[in-house]
Design a protein around this nucleic acid. Structure first.
Length: 442
RNA sequence: GUGCCCAUAGUGUAGCGGUUAACACUAGAGUUUGUGGAACUCUCAUCACGGGUUCGAAUCCCGUUGGGCACCCCA
């Protein structure tokens, strides 16, 4: 049933947020870091549509996962297509890989992808209905070294952001052959303990015993302690693979914790799975990033079989953590050197022209052209911390002159309009002998 | 989807059944009209929305919406 807000003024839909100017500097920082590292590690940027066929996710992520079952935004188009707002990036990346014939390029292919994703769940701190992910994926390579590399990039991004207290939780959940054995073992273990399991877990026992290990109910956690580990049921190839991943991580000197009970909520994972977690003082943990290997996904979505691994960072979570840890981030905001003040329409016109000229000379100028009172304009100039104010009044506009005022001292001089750029440059150089006058940033 | 808590100017708060809804900061206008930083004056809230109880509601009750937390799940 359709519903529109009753309130007289509109609000953003639940769980969807405006990113206000005040926090842009964190986003800028994030994108700067992530772009730099993706280039350095050889990931090529890929962008995919926000909407995909709903089936892509049903098939890719798994019908019985919460993400697909309860959290997907779906819609039917006029043409009758069933589309969905992407709940994650991996399935789209794989689709793009197959559709654009990347299988015929030198393997592996390394993609960097970022953008908004959507999940219809109840919003709370660090959990939104629209949030952003940055994804690193390597498709077409099974060597465990790329597992380590993906983990390394993701970890590098978070630590380059200045985040402290990160730990990498890692596990291997094996592949199809291991699962058969392990699932049986789990069922065997839990069979006579059914009575002590929570309601959800009773369901899990039937549908997906692996998820029993995900439960946080006290009873279930207790039972879990003695449950068989997936690691013990890895077959030889999976075991060797995992062992090498860990050895590579040792070599990279990234801190990790073996977490035998780490299983992920998406069906496509095989072998390596990981989460990068921040533990805060109160003991609560937030996953800032996660990922894993998905060796069957490409073929499952109709491509020529290709092994793959990926990791994604929750951008909002990373940024929230930066703010919580009080990471110092400089705003990308040019230092205001010159302020243009005017009185009268003719003067406004002259200011408009001057504005362009300063821009071409790479000098950052500011203004408050909409304000008519000179007093109010100078107040703004002062607040912005401008070094110089250039004032064009009615008289100056007619004379083709400009008043150049040094804000600090209040000393003024009348300069011909034609010479103002040079005069202003010279004056700025005097005020900031070391700064390069034509750099527009401090 | 479940449970608990919350909602007053842009921000942070006061108000606890009867007030011109208060205070601080911010913002805008101004203090004899062409010059900033101080001071002062003024301006900015249909008290989230809708309904009810009451002579009277920001204040009590119900619903909605939104926010927070926990569960669930996840980034």
């Amino acid at each position: 049933m359709p519903r529109t807000p009753k309130a007289k003024s509109f609000q953003a839909p639940k769980g969807m947020n405006d990113v206000l100017p005040g926090v842009q500097k964190y986003w800028d920082k994030f994108y700067r870091v992530v772009r730099e590292l993706s280039l350095f590690y050889g990931f090529e940027t890929l962008e995919t549509p926000v909407l995909e066929f709903a089936d892509l996710f049903k098939k890719g992520i798994g019908l019985n996962t919460d993400v697909v079952e309860h959290e997907m935004y779906t819609l039917k188009t006029k043409g009758g297509d069933f589309l969905a707002l992407r709940p994650e990036l991996t399935a789209s990346i794989v689709r793009a890989y197959i559709e654009n014939g990347f299988a015929n390029q030198p393997q592996p292919v390394k993609f960097f992808h970022h953008g908004p994703v959507f999940r219809h769940e109840s919003a709370q701190a660090g959990r939104y209905r629209q949030f952003h992910q940055a994804d690193f994926d390597i498709i077409g390579e099974s060597d465990p070294v790329v597992d380590a590399q993906v983990i390394q990039v993701v970890y590098a991004v978070l630590s380059e952001l200045g985040l402290k207290g990160l730990s990498i939780h890692i596990n291997s959940i094996g592949d199809k052959t291991c699962w058969v054995k392990y699932r049986d073992e789990l069922k065997l273990y839990y069979r006579n303990k059914m009575g002590r399991l929570c309601r959800n877990c009773k369901k899990r026992f039937k549908e997906n015993p692996l998820r029993l290990l995900d439960c946080k109910e006290e009873e279930c956690v207790a039972l879990k302690a003695a449950a068989p580990n997936s690691i013990d049921y890895l077959d030889k190839p999976c075991h060797d693979h995992f062992k090498l991943v860990l050895e590579f991580l040792d070599e990279l000197n990234v801190p990790y914790v073996l977490d035998p009970y780490l299983v992920r909520g998406l069906d496509y994972y095989t072998r390596t799975v990981f989460e990068i977690i921040h533990d805060d003082a109160t003991g609560s943990q937030t996953a800032l990033a996660s990922g894993g290997r998905y060796d069957y996904l490409v073929s499952q979505l109709g491509g020529k079989p290709a092994p793959a691994i990926g990791g994604s960072i929750g951008i909002e979570r990373a940024i929230n953590e930066m703010r919580r840890q009080d990471v110092k981030v400089a705003a990308i905001k040019p230092k205001v050197r010159i302020f243009l003040a005017q009185i009268g329409d003719l003067a406004k016109k002259k200011c408009l022209g001057l504005f362009e000229e300063f821009r071409k000379n790479n000098i950052y100028v500011s203004e408050s052209l909409g304000r008519d009172s000179i007093k109010a304009q100078l107040r703004v100039a002062d607040r912005l911390g401008a070094d110089l104010a250039l004032i064009i009044g009615q008289k100056e506009a007619l004379d083709e002159t400009v008043i150049l005022r040094e804000m600090q001292s209040g000393v003024q001089e009348v300069i011909p309009l034609a010479k103002i750029i040079d005069a202003a440059k010279k004056r700025l150089k005097k005020i900031h002998p070391r700064a390069i006058a034509n750099s527009n940033n401090s």
